[in-house]
């Protein structure tokens, strides 16, 4: 009974991950819209009124038709350049954070998960802004994410054996 539940859970997880990825590849699911276009503007939005903060994430999203009259009419052909220095600073802060967090011991698995989580945030910043993935067609993201999903799948496939080893060798 419990095994069956586990299988069902993995099935739903797989459907969610890989199904969403395939949807993204055929172009019906856009997660990039959920990443703010310019983190600095969003941060500024916290300190100013909320009306300004909503502008950078506005629906323009690369389609030339609904382009807003202000700011960047030429941005359709060349990518806009986000502010790189604040992103660099954020990456530095996260580097310090990950070093500090590694001093707090919460078990092998716990520390590993924390390290991976911070690395994922840093990696997302590099890919989204330094590599302009955020401003690229959304299809590209799925070309890259699908291999990663398979990578996670094969790790999950091997890990149960480690559980039986007990990890103490």
């Amino acid at each position: 009974m419990e095994g069956l539940l586990g299988v069902a859970f993995l099935l739903v997880l797989w459907l969610g991950l890989f199904g969403a990825a395939l949807l993204g590849l055929i172009g019906t699911f856009d997660v990039l819209k959920r990443i703010p276009r310019d983190p600095v503007l969003v941060l500024a939005g916290f300190f100013h009124s909320s009306t300004e903060a909503s502008v950078p994430g506005a629906p323009s999203g690369g389609s030339s038709g609904g382009g807003a009259p202000h700011e960047q009419p030429a941005a359709a052909e060349r990518h806009p350049h986000p502010k790189y220095v604040p992103i660099f600073v954020a990456l530095m802060v996260l580097t310090v954070v990950t070093v500090l967090l590694s001093r707090v011991h919460v078990g092998h698995l716990g520390n590993a998960l924390i390290a991976v989580a911070v690395a994922l945030v840093k990696g997302t910043l590099v890919a989204a802004f330094f590599m302009h993935l955020k401003f690229e067609t959304k299809h590209l993201l799925w070309v890259l994410l699908i291999p990663v999903i398979f990578g996670i799948a094969y790790m999950l496939g091997i890990f149960p054996d480690i559980g039986t080893l007990g990890g103490g060798h």
Binding site: A112, P147, F150, G151, M155, I158, F159, I162, G167, H169
Partner: peptide, 24 residues
């Protein structure tokens, strides 16, 4: 780069598996 992701995913994956089977 997507193929490179797979290259390093293999390395990282095998490392993590080895690591947790010889944790201490």
């Amino acid at each position: 780069l997507a193929s490179e992701v797979m290259f390093f995913a293999g390395l990282l994956g095998s490392y993590l598996v080895l690591r947790f089977s010889h944790a201490n």
